[in-house]
Each structure stands twice: as C-alpha cells, then as structure tokens.
C-alpha cells in the first residue's frame, strides 16, 4: 500500500491541516516509509487467526448509570480560544 500526493492532500483537508505543496511532497515519502514498514506484517501467515483486541485477557469494563461528573463549565471553557458567556465561540459554520 502506498499513497500519492493527491491522497496526502485529501487526508490533510479532511483533518483540517493546512500543508504547503513542498510539505505534501515530503509527507508522501514519509507516509510511504511508514506504510512499507507496517506492511512487513503482511509476511506473517494469519489465516484462521482471530484478530486480537488486547495483549492480556481483558474485558470491557462498564459503568453504572449514575451522574458522577460534569458541572465543571469553567474548567471545560478555560482553554477555549474564544468564548461568549457560557458558550464556546467558533467561526460561524452555517452555509
């Protein structure tokens, strides 16, 4: 598997990351290096082997339905680049 420059630009756009043309070129090489490295796993024969979900035997822990959190508005808003009253403020996103 490998990526071309169009794919890199598309992923960047979907991730809302602005990259220059030069950066995209560089990224194609880096990403393909990573993909080739991961692809070595393809050499292992895993036919009939169930995908593993955890390294040690483990099951999903569930919570009881109780309110134990929240009411921390100021903490939640503390790092917001913009806020108005009790709201986060973001650039207008309506079409």
């Amino acid at each position: 598997m490998s990526v071309d420059k169009d794919t890199v630009n598309k992923i960047a756009r979907l991730s809302r990351i602005a990259i220059s043309d030069a950066e995209a070129d560089k990224m194609v090489g880096e990403l393909n290096g990573i993909l080739a490295w991961v692809e070595q796993l393809g050499e292992v024969d895993v036919i009939g082997v169930e995908p593993m979900t955890a390294v040690i035997p483990n099951t999903l822990r569930l919570r009881d339905d109780v309110v134990t959190d929240g009411d921390v508005r100021d903490k939640v808003l503390a790092n917001a680049p913009a806020k108005e009253g009790s709201f986060f403020g973001v650039p207008k996103v309506i079409e």
Binding site: V66, V67, D69, G70, D71, R73, V76, G85, S86
Partner: peptide
Amino acid sequence: ESKLFSGSSTGFGAEPNSHVSL
C-alpha cells in the same frame, strides 16, 4: 441518567456547558 461514555447528566434544558465533563 448519565451519558454513554461519561458520568455527566443527560438532563434536558440545563445551563449551557454545565452537563459536560472533561
């Protein structure tokens, strides 16, 4: 009573951003 992945309340009509955990 609480959200799918956190212990915040699901109550309707609360003050904005008050039923929000980290």
